[in-house]
């Protein structure tokens, strides 16, 4: 942690309500435009949320919701030509305007990322140990020390026999072990925030449960903040302290994971929740929403969800609903939210 102190040192704290955990990252009015064949497409539109230290914040959304783009903007890996507005405050410094050189120093050290497909994210021609230790080596750590640190890291994430396995290549690892190696790679820079994009989607259920337990343990032991991006509400229910539900590039609902998933206030969140089939009880196939998730390129007027919403009225077709508080810690962008 000390190696990166020059970029992660907290700025003078701003006054904030004492009951809320201090936000590590504050995303304010973030909008992202990507170039498209018919002009720029606003893939993320006026998104605001916070990620607090020691908490897991879940970004929920389907395809085209902008959840992955939001995470990509935070880590600073947006495609060339992306136009970003708004602010992303990291210890008081704005990631949007930060010099690329500083961002690079922050990447992996202050903020690290775990990708969905470890097979694609790991280099097949380099040993696992070399990849886990890359950031340490680049930081100038002596080779011997790197080796020991890597072995400790692999041990911490549950790779068996790390003394031998750090010298193996990704193809010698199973899918679950590869994802553990990815987690070790993320941990190597002692980040304060880990972004995890669908970290268990490519894994089998039995492996998924173990990776989720690992992520929870890391959050608790290291007081690390995590931004978990997923379409899987079951994963969110098990890991996320707070959730942010996105649709067509906008936020529909924010609140504690338990409350949002138990009693959704936004009709879209409700539809998502009822469409998750249960394993421990028999459920009927949910009444499906009509149509497909709205594409940001053809975002419907007013509330982007209105063409699929059973409660939609005239107002929903014309006015964009603003985020408003419906209960303590619960915000919803809907003209007619469920009563809380």
């Amino acid at each position: 942690m000390s190696r990166s102190s020059e970029v992660t040192d907290p700025a003078p704290a701003e006054p904030r309500p004492p009951e809320e955990p201090a936000p590590l990252l504050r995303v304010e009015h973030l909008s992202i435009d990507l170039p498209g064949p018919a002009g720029p497409v606003r893939v993320v539109d006026d998104v605001s949320f916070t990620v607090a230290a020691g908490r897991t914040t879940g970004l929920i959304g389907e395809s085209g919701s902008g959840k992955t783009m939001t995470a990509t903007a935070i880590i600073g890996l947006l495609p060339v030509g992306a136009a970003v507005s708004g602010r992303m405050l990291w210890h008081g410094a704005d990631l949007v305007t930060m010099a690329e050189q500083d961002r690079r120093r922050l990447r992996g050290r202050g903020i690290a990322m775990i990708f969905q497909d470890p097979q694609a994210a790991l280099d097949p021609t380099q040993t696992i140990g070399r990849q886990v230790g890359e950031i340490l080596r680049r930081g100038g750590m002596p080779a011997k020390e790197v080796r020991q640190t890597v072995i400790d890291l692999l041990d911490r994430v549950g790779v068996p026999d790390p003394e031998t396995r750090h010298a193996q290549y990704p193809h010698q690892y199973s899918g679950g072990l590869r994802q553990r190696a990815m987690v070790a790679t993320a941990l190597a820079g002692s980040p304060q925030l880990i972004l995890a994009d669908e970290p268990t989607t490519a894994l089998d259920v039995t492996v998924q449960a173990r990776i989720l337990a690992l992520l929870r343990r890391i959050r608790d032991e290291e007081a690390m903040a995590m931004l978990l991006v997923s379409h899987d509400l079951r994963v969110m229910a098990h890991v996320a302290d707070e959730v942010v539900v996105m649709y067509a590039g906008r936020i529909c609902e924010v609140g504690s994971g338990r409350e949002v998933l138990n009693s959704p206030a936004h009709p879209y969140t409700r539809a998502l929740v009822v469409s998750v089939p249960a394993v421990r009880s028999k459920t009927a196939i949910a009444e499906p929403l009509p149509g497909s998730p709205a594409s940001p390129a053809e975002r419907p007027s007013g509330c982007p969800f209105h063409p699929r919403c059973a409660k939609a009225q005239d107002r929903c077709r014309s006015d964009v609903p603003q985020m408003r508080q419906v209960a303590a810690g619960r915000q919803v962008a809907c003209h007619f939210p469920e009563e809380m």
Binding site: V205, A209, R234, L261, V273, V279
Partner: peptide, 13 residues
Amino acid sequence: RKLLDAALDLEGA
């Protein structure tokens, strides 16, 4: 049983 135990549900999380 192992498969069923590992499966996640929305309820009871």
